[in-house]
Design a protein around this nucleic acid. Structure first.
Lengths: 342, 342
DNA sequence: TTGAAAGCGCTAACAT
DNA sequence: ATGTTAGCGCTTTCAA
């Protein structure tokens, strides 16, 4: 392998000036070049195996055609579809997503964010937002273009695409009420995360609006959206309120943890205790029992977030702050049934 | 927000020349600078919120500190842990992974590959390899640094980290033999993919070495590693060989498809037909029935691949082609049991 | 220990 | 329709 060829190599071979070669190679400026000349340049480029250098172009144009996508945890199966939605939409305009997986670790997140800023991404899509989040504050301070996806934040100056978490939780809770449950508990997500707090409030309000009391011991806050957190949360919940006949979990992983504990304590699901999840993660229908859950259009969440960001990137001038909320659906499966004493 | 500040802004504020500022800011060359001066520069940088421009640096040094990671399908839960392993190792040396998700689409793969080459990544980790693969040929022609992970290829000039697929399949097959099965079928993966072909051959050889015949109709080749492909593959398999008492699936998704068909046909698993998977994907233990499968150390696969690539990137001179194989383990769960006629 | 100067590969304003 | 020129922000010889 010799040195990789550059624009001026192509220009020389085509017998034109560098600038002409540049114009010919760039679809947007090709019309400025004589057709025959352009052909010659294209041919030369092909012959030399010329690959444009995005680094050099980025330095010159100060646009890199990249977008930083910050994800809390790629192992959580709800995020890959969001990523795919983002990628598909961005690709339509020639943008590439640079994925950053923070693993729910603030250190890591800072480092990755820094690295993306250093790489001069044109914008960010953030799925790690907490209700108050230093990272977002700094992004705003730096004037970066940011769109939130899946999780909102307390600030109102960011575009965001979220699921209607309030509605989703209400659907799950009302489903249980309709089945006849009167002692329903809630495995809440972390309360510094928007989804965690809004789902908890929706649970509470929905029960209240159906004239059910919500004793404090019926709500337990988990410290992460993971199966392990669901296990310890459910243990606490059942220790305090052993007579619950149903549990609304703030997401599927927590619900899975709940099922683990029910099994461990010999409380059959759904015969003795019903469980609902949230997200309809892949294979939720394959579990034992199949999980009743709230389906969120994750792909579309990603796609819409991508569109919102593209809007900011491609349209000049100031922008409205748009907040989009997509509607979830209740998926009834085997993990919910009427209460035993129903 | 004013313009983002550059090295010369920092230099001016610290009252030194740009070059000095550069040296001070760069850990590797900091020792060339008077300690007090360096402090001044650092302070100035902090005050200005200076963020080095990786684009400019990359243009100058022709090293971007990035690695392209090409994944067939992020929705397949086996890949996220591989990615995490890669990222963790690369991060140790300051490299960043740029993820490219091809969605098993060759067009997409070409486009993403092109885009990564254009972005001048320093190397590639490829998990999409087929046994013969134009992409790899071109990468070799261009002299790119490439390490394969999870899937090998027919070429012998690439470093690769794979699981011992032969052993894994043998473990699963022998487990069924030991349970007493005498009519075992195989849901093979795509035969143009290394894992698909080696697992199929291992299945075949393992049965032969236990003096079992392998009629052609006991092996069905699926055209993808997906649940849907598993469904249609299993239908074909059972249509041809309805008396099978066990199925070795080439991966978990195919196994899931097999279970779907068994359920649809009223053949209870494992009572009537046992099923094994491959990979031990997340939540495989939660399925109904819990899936007996072969656990592969995915994270370590990724980590080792990262190390191999780092080696090529950071050590000068020519390199040996290393091929690493990691050992899988059989995980026995509820989807396997003695045959009904046992 | 620091400064001067060149140049990585490209695009875009300006000139012809 | 094409060429000239300057410069994006940085690192790195070379010179002082």
């Amino acid at each position: 392998m010799s040195r990789t060829s550059t624009l001026s190599d192509v220009a020389r071979r085509a017998g034109v000036h560098q600038a002409t070669a540049s114009r010919a190679l760039n679809p947007a400026s090709r019309h400025l070049v004589n057709h025959a000349t352009a052909e010659r340049v294209l041919a030369a480029a092909r012959e030399l195996g010329y690959v444009p250098n995005a680094i050099a172009r980025g330095l010159r144009t100060s646009r890199t055609g990249t977008v930083g996508v910050i994800i809390p945890d790629l192992m959580n199966p709800l995020f890959p579809p969001i990523v795919r939605g983002i990628e598909d939409v961005l690709a339509q305009e020639g943008y590439t997503a640079l994925l950053a997986n923070t693993d729910n670790d603030e250190q890591r997140e800072r480092a990755l964010f820094e690295s993306l800023v250093t790489r001069r991404v044109d914008g960010f899509i953030v799925a790690t937002a907490r209700r108050t989040h230093p990272l977002l504050d700094e992004a705003a301070r730096r004037g970066l273009k940011v769109v939130l996806v899946y999780r909102g934040t307390d600030r109102t100056d960011f575009c965001a695409v979220t699921a209607d978490d309030w509605l989703g939780t209400a659907l799950a809770t009302e489903h249980l009420i309709e089945l006849g449950h009167r002692r329903i508990g809630h495995l809440a997500g972390p309360q510094d995360v928007y989804t965690g707090s809004i789902r908890a409030r929706s649970f509470h309000e929905t029960l209240r609006s159906h004239d059910q009391d919500v004793p404090a011991e019926h709500i337990v806050v988990c410290d992460a959206y993971s199966e392990a957190a669901g296990v310890s949360g459910t243990r606490r919940l059942l220790d305090r309120a052993p007579d619950l006949t149903a549990i609304v979990a703030a997401n599927d992983l927590l619900a899975l943890g709940a099922c683990d504990v029910l099994r461990e304590r010999g409380l059959r699901c759904p015969d003795r205790v019903s469980v609902t999840g949230f997200n309809d993660m892949p294979f939720a229908d394959k579990f034992d029992p199949p999980l009743t859950t709230v389906r969120v259009p994750h792909y579309d969440l990603g796609a819409e977030a991508g569109r919102l960001l593209l809007d900011q990137l491609t349209r000049p001038g100031p922008h409205l702050t748009k907040r989009l909320s997509l509607t979830p659906t209740l998926i009834k499966r085997g993990s919910t049934a009427p209460p035993p004493d129903g």
